[in-house]
């Protein structure tokens, strides 16, 4: 099975390891992510105004190109997959909005005419987590695990955009389980912790890093307190904030814990080549922990 894959801005720059590991994992699980052609910015952050159609053009353009792409892929459902919570949220919300309001869609399609595009409202948007849960299945993930993550106590961090609002959520907004289920199928321990959906501070990192730092402190302290030795995330922005700001706050917060994109850990557990993870891009080097637990370079 193939999946039309929408990368978005970050996966090609700061988060190369997220993308490469995800693609590697997707291939190994027969749910291959195939990058769609001619993609543009998803339109993040999604506008919550009722009257700004302009801000909805970018995501609709993505959806219409993806719709073309899945037809070319043949072995694919009418869905486009993202690796980023913000892309997931923006695309899902706008997709739902234009499906509900055909008049708006008509106006947007009029703008897309220049690109000889039209969106017919025939696509679904998925985060890769949903593909793993709904199309692959946890059991099939577990079957591919050759290097179980023994000794890893993982706090699954959802952040806000995966769970809010109703139109974008991939799981129950108050008690999600998808990331924990993946953690279990990788042979790691699940940490039960309450801060899994606290917002990381998001785009405030640009001009209000105090807001982000205050959130990161709360989140990381809570993760450590509940016994986590690593965090997994599903969004490059959450990853940056939690990862980089821990380092920035070294003076205050000692002993940072590594932040993994969930497919990085999957790649390790599934014994995939380590170069896909690009750990050199992670701000907090996760290798010492992985070595300590004997999880690096081992093959069963």
């Amino acid at each position: 099975m193939k999946n039309s894959y929408f990368p978005g801005c970050n996966l090609k720059t700061e988060a190369k390891g997220f993308e490469e590991s995800a693609i590697a994992v997707s291939k190994a699980l027969d749910a291959e992510l195939v990058e769609m052609p001619e993609w543009n910015c998803c339109g993040t952050v999604q506008t919550m105004t009722t009257d700004n159609l302009m801000r909805r053009i970018a995501p609709v353009r993505v959806l219409s190109r993806a719709s073309k792409h899945v037809k070319e892929l043949k072995d694919s459902q009418n869905q486009v997959t993202t690796l980023c919570s913000m892309c997931n949220s923006t695309l899902k919300i706008v997709n739902a909005e234009v499906k509900e309001n055909p008049n708006d869609l008509e106006k947007i399609n009029f703008q897309l005419e220049n690109d000889e595009l039209i969106y017919e409202g025939d696509m679904e948007v998925k985060h890769f987590l949903e593909i793993l849960r709904d199309d692959v299945g946890y059991e099939n993930i577990a079957k591919k695990v050759t290097n179980p993550l023994e000794g890893m106590n993982i706090a699954s961090y959802y952040g806000c955009m995966l769970l809010h609002p109703d139109k974008a959520k991939i799981d129950d907004e108050e008690m999600p389980t998808v990331m924990e289920s993946i953690v279990l199928s990788l042979g790691a321990e699940v940490v039960d912790w309450p801060y899994f959906k606290q917002c990381c501070g998001s785009y405030h990192i640009v001009d209000r890093d105090d807001i982000v730092n205050s959130q990161v402190t709360k989140i990381i302290r809570n993760a450590k307190k509940t016994g986590a030795n690593a965090l997994i995330v599903a969004c490059p922005l959450c990853a940056y904030n939690l990862d980089n700001q821990q380092l920035e706050m070294q003076g205050v917060e000692k002993d940072p814990i590594p932040i993994f994109y969930f497919t990085q850990l999957m790649a390790i557990a599934m014994g995939l080549p380590q170069k896909v993870n690009h750990f050199e891009d992670n701000h907090i080097n996760p290798e010492p922990l992985l070595k300590e637990l004997g999880l690096l370079g081992k093959k069963k």
Binding site: C9, E14, Y203, I205, V206, Y240
Partner: peptide, 14 residues
């Protein structure tokens, strides 16, 4: 240094 996504988000909100 800052991820694109944050820059875009921030500019669009603020």
């Amino acid at each position: 240094k800052i991820p694109n996504i944050a820059l875009v988000g921030s500019f669009r909100k603020k």
